[in-house]
Amino acid sequence: MDLLSSFLIMAALVAVPLLAGVAGGGQGVLLVGIPYAAFAIFIVGLCWRVVGWARSPVPFRIPTTCGQQKSLPWIKSATLDNPSTGTGAVGRMALEVLLFRSLFRNNRAEMYGQRYVFGDSKWLWLGALAFHWSLLVIVLRHLRLFVQPVPACVLALGKVDSFFQIGAPALYLSNVIVLCALMYLMLRRLWDLRLRYICQFSDYFALFLLLGIALSGVLMRYGTRVDVVAVKQLAIGLATFQPVIPAGLGLVFPVHVLLVSTLAAYFPFSKLMHMGGVFLSPTRNLANNSRMKRHVNPWNYPVKTHTYAEWEEEFRDKLTMAGIPLDEAKND
Protein backbone atom coordinates (compact mmCIF):
# COMPACT_ATOMS: atom_id res chain seq x y z
CA MET A 1 0.00 0.00 0.00
CA ASP A 2 2.65 2.51 1.06
CA LEU A 3 4.94 1.14 -1.59
CA LEU A 4 2.29 1.48 -4.25
CA SER A 5 1.20 4.97 -3.33
CA SER A 6 4.75 6.24 -3.19
CA PHE A 7 5.42 4.66 -6.56
CA LEU A 8 2.33 6.27 -8.09
CA ILE A 9 3.22 9.71 -6.82
CA MET A 10 6.70 9.19 -8.14
CA ALA A 11 5.34 8.19 -11.53
CA ALA A 12 3.19 11.31 -11.62
CA LEU A 13 6.20 13.46 -10.80
CA VAL A 14 8.00 12.00 -13.79
CA ALA A 15 5.01 12.14 -16.10
CA VAL A 16 4.01 15.76 -15.54
CA PRO A 17 7.18 17.41 -16.83
CA LEU A 18 7.44 14.91 -19.67
CA LEU A 19 3.92 15.70 -20.82
CA ALA A 20 4.54 19.40 -20.37
CA GLY A 21 7.71 19.04 -22.42
CA VAL A 22 5.91 17.25 -25.22
CA ALA A 23 3.11 19.79 -25.18
CA GLY A 24 5.73 22.51 -25.04
CA GLY A 25 4.36 24.53 -22.13
CA GLY A 26 4.73 25.20 -18.47
CA GLN A 27 8.50 25.69 -18.65
CA GLY A 28 8.34 28.83 -16.56
CA VAL A 29 6.52 27.08 -13.75
CA LEU A 30 8.57 23.91 -13.91
CA LEU A 31 12.01 25.45 -14.22
CA VAL A 32 11.64 28.67 -12.27
CA GLY A 33 8.48 28.84 -10.16
CA ILE A 34 8.62 25.41 -8.57
CA PRO A 35 12.37 25.40 -7.90
CA TYR A 36 12.16 28.78 -6.16
CA ALA A 37 9.14 27.73 -4.12
CA ALA A 38 10.73 24.42 -3.20
CA PHE A 39 13.98 26.04 -2.21
CA ALA A 40 12.12 28.54 -0.04
CA ILE A 41 10.17 25.75 1.65
CA PHE A 42 13.40 23.85 2.17
CA ILE A 43 15.22 26.72 3.85
CA VAL A 44 12.30 27.94 5.94
CA GLY A 45 11.24 24.42 6.85
CA LEU A 46 14.73 23.36 7.81
CA CYS A 47 15.15 26.38 10.09
CA TRP A 48 11.70 25.89 11.57
CA ARG A 49 12.43 22.27 12.42
CA VAL A 50 15.90 22.85 13.84
CA VAL A 51 14.70 25.82 15.87
CA GLY A 52 11.79 23.68 17.03
CA TRP A 53 14.16 21.07 18.40
CA ALA A 54 16.50 23.63 19.85
CA ARG A 55 13.65 25.29 21.71
CA SER A 56 13.07 22.14 23.76
CA PRO A 57 15.71 22.06 26.46
CA VAL A 58 17.89 19.14 27.43
CA PRO A 59 16.83 18.70 31.06
CA PHE A 60 19.14 15.81 31.86
CA ARG A 61 22.57 14.71 30.82
CA ILE A 62 21.83 11.31 29.34
CA PRO A 63 24.67 10.17 27.06
CA THR A 64 24.65 6.51 26.11
CA THR A 65 28.05 5.45 27.30
CA CYS A 66 29.75 3.00 24.98
CA GLY A 67 33.04 2.48 26.75
CA GLN A 68 34.92 2.85 30.00
CA GLN A 69 34.15 6.02 31.99
CA LYS A 70 36.82 8.38 33.20
CA SER A 71 37.22 7.56 36.85
CA LEU A 72 40.47 6.47 38.47
CA PRO A 73 43.64 7.76 36.82
CA TRP A 74 45.09 4.31 36.27
CA ILE A 75 42.05 3.00 34.39
CA LYS A 76 42.16 3.82 30.70
CA SER A 77 38.96 5.51 29.68
CA ALA A 78 37.31 5.46 26.26
CA THR A 79 37.77 9.11 25.32
CA LEU A 80 35.64 8.91 22.18
CA ASP A 81 33.01 6.29 22.95
CA ASN A 82 32.50 7.66 26.44
CA PRO A 83 33.86 11.20 26.36
CA SER A 84 34.30 13.08 29.61
CA THR A 85 35.09 16.43 27.99
CA GLY A 86 33.48 18.68 25.41
CA THR A 87 36.32 18.02 23.00
CA GLY A 88 35.77 14.30 23.40
CA ALA A 89 32.07 14.77 22.68
CA VAL A 90 32.93 16.71 19.52
CA GLY A 91 35.18 13.84 18.50
CA ARG A 92 32.41 11.37 19.18
CA MET A 93 30.00 13.41 17.06
CA ALA A 94 32.57 13.64 14.27
CA LEU A 95 32.93 9.86 14.23
CA GLU A 96 29.18 9.55 14.28
CA VAL A 97 28.48 12.03 11.50
CA LEU A 98 31.42 11.31 9.23
CA LEU A 99 31.89 7.58 9.72
CA PHE A 100 28.58 6.38 11.21
CA ARG A 101 30.33 4.96 14.26
CA SER A 102 27.20 3.48 15.82
CA LEU A 103 26.15 1.64 12.70
CA PHE A 104 29.70 0.39 12.41
CA ARG A 105 29.33 -1.18 15.81
CA ASN A 106 26.99 -3.68 14.21
CA ASN A 107 29.91 -5.01 12.33
CA ARG A 108 30.84 -8.53 12.66
CA ALA A 109 32.68 -10.81 10.37
CA GLU A 110 33.08 -14.34 11.47
CA MET A 111 33.99 -17.74 10.23
CA TYR A 112 31.17 -20.22 10.02
CA GLY A 113 32.59 -23.55 9.07
CA GLN A 114 34.70 -22.66 6.09
CA ARG A 115 32.68 -19.62 5.19
CA TYR A 116 33.46 -16.03 6.05
CA VAL A 117 30.15 -14.35 6.70
CA PHE A 118 29.22 -10.69 6.86
CA GLY A 119 25.90 -9.95 8.45
CA ASP A 120 23.43 -7.64 6.81
CA SER A 121 24.45 -4.95 9.24
CA LYS A 122 27.92 -4.73 7.77
CA TRP A 123 26.33 -3.99 4.44
CA LEU A 124 23.99 -1.50 6.03
CA TRP A 125 26.92 0.49 7.34
CA LEU A 126 28.76 0.28 4.04
CA GLY A 127 25.65 1.07 2.01
CA ALA A 128 24.71 4.03 4.18
CA LEU A 129 28.24 5.41 4.16
CA ALA A 130 28.60 4.96 0.39
CA PHE A 131 25.29 6.64 -0.26
CA HIS A 132 25.79 9.66 1.98
CA TRP A 133 29.34 10.37 0.91
CA SER A 134 28.65 10.06 -2.78
CA LEU A 135 25.58 12.22 -2.38
CA LEU A 136 27.75 14.88 -0.77
CA VAL A 137 30.27 14.67 -3.59
CA ILE A 138 27.53 14.95 -6.17
CA VAL A 139 25.97 17.98 -4.50
CA LEU A 140 29.35 19.69 -4.30
CA ARG A 141 30.07 18.85 -7.92
CA HIS A 142 26.84 20.55 -8.92
CA LEU A 143 28.22 23.82 -7.61
CA ARG A 144 30.06 24.16 -10.90
CA LEU A 145 26.70 24.83 -12.52
CA PHE A 146 25.72 27.57 -10.12
CA VAL A 147 28.90 29.59 -9.71
CA GLN A 148 31.05 31.34 -12.22
CA PRO A 149 34.02 31.12 -12.11
CA VAL A 150 33.94 27.57 -10.79
CA PRO A 151 35.98 27.28 -7.57
CA ALA A 152 39.18 25.31 -7.95
CA CYS A 153 38.21 22.85 -5.23
CA VAL A 154 35.01 21.91 -7.04
CA LEU A 155 36.93 21.32 -10.24
CA ALA A 156 39.47 19.24 -8.35
CA LEU A 157 36.68 17.20 -6.80
CA GLY A 158 35.31 16.45 -10.27
CA LYS A 159 38.77 15.40 -11.38
CA VAL A 160 39.17 13.00 -8.50
CA ASP A 161 35.67 11.68 -8.96
CA SER A 162 36.32 10.86 -12.62
CA PHE A 163 39.77 9.51 -11.84
CA PHE A 164 39.35 6.33 -13.82
CA GLN A 165 38.67 8.18 -17.09
CA ILE A 166 36.23 5.63 -18.35
CA GLY A 167 34.27 6.72 -21.42
CA ALA A 168 33.48 10.22 -22.54
CA PRO A 169 32.14 12.14 -20.76
CA ALA A 170 34.22 10.57 -18.05
CA LEU A 171 32.30 8.34 -15.67
CA TYR A 172 31.92 9.80 -12.19
CA LEU A 173 32.63 7.21 -9.55
CA SER A 174 30.12 8.86 -7.21
CA ASN A 175 27.33 8.29 -9.74
CA VAL A 176 27.99 4.60 -9.85
CA ILE A 177 28.26 4.34 -6.09
CA VAL A 178 25.17 6.35 -5.33
CA LEU A 179 23.07 4.23 -7.66
CA CYS A 180 24.36 0.97 -6.27
CA ALA A 181 23.90 2.15 -2.69
CA LEU A 182 20.37 3.37 -3.35
CA MET A 183 19.45 0.13 -5.03
CA TYR A 184 20.82 -1.77 -2.06
CA LEU A 185 18.95 0.41 0.44
CA MET A 186 15.73 -0.07 -1.52
CA LEU A 187 16.12 -3.79 -1.99
CA ARG A 188 16.87 -4.49 1.64
CA ARG A 189 13.65 -2.75 2.59
CA LEU A 190 11.74 -5.05 0.29
CA TRP A 191 13.75 -8.15 1.04
CA ASP A 192 13.94 -8.04 4.84
CA LEU A 193 10.44 -8.71 6.09
CA ARG A 194 11.23 -7.11 9.41
CA LEU A 195 11.90 -3.86 7.61
CA ARG A 196 8.96 -4.25 5.29
CA TYR A 197 6.79 -4.64 8.35
CA ILE A 198 7.59 -1.15 9.56
CA CYS A 199 8.39 0.65 6.30
CA GLN A 200 6.13 3.55 5.55
CA PHE A 201 5.32 5.77 2.66
CA SER A 202 8.06 8.14 3.67
CA ASP A 203 10.73 5.43 3.52
CA TYR A 204 9.85 4.32 0.01
CA PHE A 205 9.09 7.78 -1.28
CA ALA A 206 12.41 9.24 -0.24
CA LEU A 207 14.25 6.37 -1.87
CA PHE A 208 12.18 6.62 -5.05
CA LEU A 209 12.86 10.34 -5.26
CA LEU A 210 16.58 9.90 -4.79
CA LEU A 211 16.70 7.05 -7.27
CA GLY A 212 14.73 9.12 -9.77
CA ILE A 213 17.03 12.08 -9.33
CA ALA A 214 20.13 9.96 -9.71
CA LEU A 215 18.82 8.09 -12.75
CA SER A 216 17.63 11.20 -14.55
CA GLY A 217 20.96 12.87 -13.85
CA VAL A 218 22.91 9.91 -15.16
CA LEU A 219 20.65 9.71 -18.18
CA MET A 220 21.32 13.34 -19.04
CA ARG A 221 25.04 13.00 -18.67
CA TYR A 222 25.68 9.74 -20.42
CA GLY A 223 22.52 9.20 -22.47
CA THR A 224 20.66 12.17 -23.84
CA ARG A 225 23.71 14.39 -23.42
CA VAL A 226 22.02 17.51 -22.09
CA ASP A 227 23.36 20.86 -23.23
CA VAL A 228 25.48 21.80 -20.21
CA VAL A 229 25.86 25.39 -21.33
CA ALA A 230 22.11 25.83 -21.37
CA VAL A 231 21.77 24.20 -17.97
CA LYS A 232 24.41 26.46 -16.54
CA GLN A 233 22.70 29.48 -18.01
CA LEU A 234 19.49 28.52 -16.24
CA ALA A 235 21.25 27.64 -13.00
CA ILE A 236 23.19 30.91 -12.82
CA GLY A 237 20.04 32.77 -13.70
CA LEU A 238 18.25 31.13 -10.80
CA ALA A 239 21.15 31.70 -8.45
CA THR A 240 21.38 35.40 -9.28
CA PHE A 241 17.60 35.86 -9.21
CA GLN A 242 17.57 36.79 -12.88
CA PRO A 243 16.00 33.64 -14.27
CA VAL A 244 16.17 32.97 -18.00
CA ILE A 245 14.94 29.86 -19.74
CA PRO A 246 17.38 28.90 -22.44
CA ALA A 247 16.36 26.65 -25.32
CA GLY A 248 17.62 23.10 -25.73
CA LEU A 249 17.20 21.75 -22.21
CA GLY A 250 15.58 18.58 -23.45
CA LEU A 251 12.87 16.42 -21.97
CA VAL A 252 14.73 14.80 -19.09
CA PHE A 253 16.06 17.95 -17.51
CA PRO A 254 12.68 19.25 -16.27
CA VAL A 255 12.06 15.83 -14.72
CA HIS A 256 15.34 16.07 -12.84
CA VAL A 257 14.51 19.57 -11.65
CA LEU A 258 11.01 18.65 -10.52
CA LEU A 259 12.25 15.66 -8.57
CA VAL A 260 14.96 17.70 -6.88
CA SER A 261 12.40 20.38 -6.05
CA THR A 262 10.03 17.81 -4.62
CA LEU A 263 12.81 16.36 -2.50
CA ALA A 264 13.74 19.81 -1.21
CA ALA A 265 10.15 20.72 -0.38
CA TYR A 266 9.47 17.32 1.18
CA PHE A 267 12.66 17.36 3.20
CA PRO A 268 11.58 19.42 6.24
CA PHE A 269 8.41 17.40 6.68
CA SER A 270 10.01 14.02 6.57
CA LYS A 271 12.44 11.69 8.23
CA LEU A 272 15.12 13.20 5.98
CA MET A 273 15.47 15.76 8.75
CA HIS A 274 17.76 13.26 10.43
CA MET A 275 20.47 15.23 8.66
CA GLY A 276 19.97 18.05 11.13
CA GLY A 277 18.77 15.95 14.02
CA VAL A 278 21.87 13.84 14.33
CA PHE A 279 23.79 16.84 15.63
CA LEU A 280 21.32 17.47 18.43
CA SER A 281 20.97 13.97 19.87
CA PRO A 282 21.47 14.22 23.65
CA THR A 283 22.61 10.62 23.96
CA ARG A 284 25.54 11.39 21.67
CA ASN A 285 26.53 15.04 21.85
CA LEU A 286 26.98 15.37 25.60
CA ALA A 287 30.06 14.53 27.61
CA ASN A 288 29.61 11.90 30.30
CA ASN A 289 30.70 14.19 33.11
CA SER A 290 27.50 14.16 35.18
CA ARG A 291 29.31 13.67 38.46
CA MET A 292 32.07 16.19 37.68
CA LYS A 293 29.90 19.13 36.78
CA ARG A 294 26.30 19.76 37.63
CA HIS A 295 23.95 19.80 34.66
CA VAL A 296 21.16 22.35 35.13
CA ASN A 297 17.58 21.63 34.18
CA PRO A 298 15.92 24.93 33.24
CA TRP A 299 12.47 23.76 34.29
CA ASN A 300 13.45 21.98 37.49
CA TYR A 301 10.57 22.49 39.91
CA PRO A 302 10.02 21.64 43.56
CA VAL A 303 8.19 18.38 44.23
CA LYS A 304 6.39 16.93 47.19
CA THR A 305 8.74 14.80 49.22
CA HIS A 306 8.46 12.96 52.48
CA THR A 307 10.80 15.02 54.67
CA TYR A 308 12.93 13.68 57.45
CA ALA A 309 10.88 15.56 60.03
CA GLU A 310 7.64 14.00 58.79
CA TRP A 311 9.28 10.59 58.71
CA GLU A 312 10.70 10.92 62.21
CA GLU A 313 7.31 12.01 63.48
CA GLU A 314 5.62 9.00 61.90
CA PHE A 315 8.12 6.43 63.17
CA ARG A 316 9.10 8.08 66.46
CA ASP A 317 8.09 5.16 68.65
CA LYS A 318 9.85 2.61 66.57
CA LEU A 319 12.97 4.74 66.29
CA THR A 320 13.06 5.21 70.03
CA MET A 321 12.48 1.55 70.66
CA ALA A 322 15.31 0.59 68.34
CA GLY A 323 17.62 3.18 69.89
CA ILE A 324 18.15 5.05 66.64
CA PRO A 325 19.13 8.67 67.38
CA LEU A 326 16.42 11.29 66.87
CA ASP A 327 16.69 14.89 65.74
CA GLU A 328 14.03 16.21 68.01
CA ALA A 329 13.43 14.86 71.47
CA LYS A 330 9.83 15.27 72.58
CA ASN A 331 8.88 15.38 76.18
CA ASP A 332 5.47 13.94 76.71
Binding site: G52, S56, P57, V58, N106, L124, K271, H274, S281
Partner: peptide, 20 residues
Protein backbone atom coordinates in the same frame (compact mmCIF):
# COMPACT_ATOMS: atom_id res chain seq x y z
CA UNK B 1 8.39 21.07 24.93
CA UNK B 2 10.31 19.85 27.96
CA UNK B 3 12.48 17.10 26.50
CA UNK B 4 14.56 17.61 23.40
CA UNK B 5 15.29 13.90 23.52
CA UNK B 6 11.60 13.06 23.16
CA UNK B 7 10.95 15.57 20.42
CA UNK B 8 14.02 14.62 18.44
CA UNK B 9 13.49 10.89 18.79
CA UNK B 10 9.96 11.34 17.51
CA UNK B 11 11.31 12.96 14.35
CA UNK B 12 14.60 11.52 13.25
CA UNK B 13 14.18 7.74 13.04
CA UNK B 14 14.73 6.54 9.48
CA UNK B 15 13.75 2.94 10.23
CA UNK B 16 17.09 1.63 9.07
CA UNK B 17 16.63 -1.47 11.19
CA UNK B 18 20.01 -1.40 12.93
CA UNK B 19 18.25 -1.75 16.27
CA UNK B 20 15.88 -4.52 15.21
Amino acid sequence: EKYRSFKLFMDVCVRCGACA
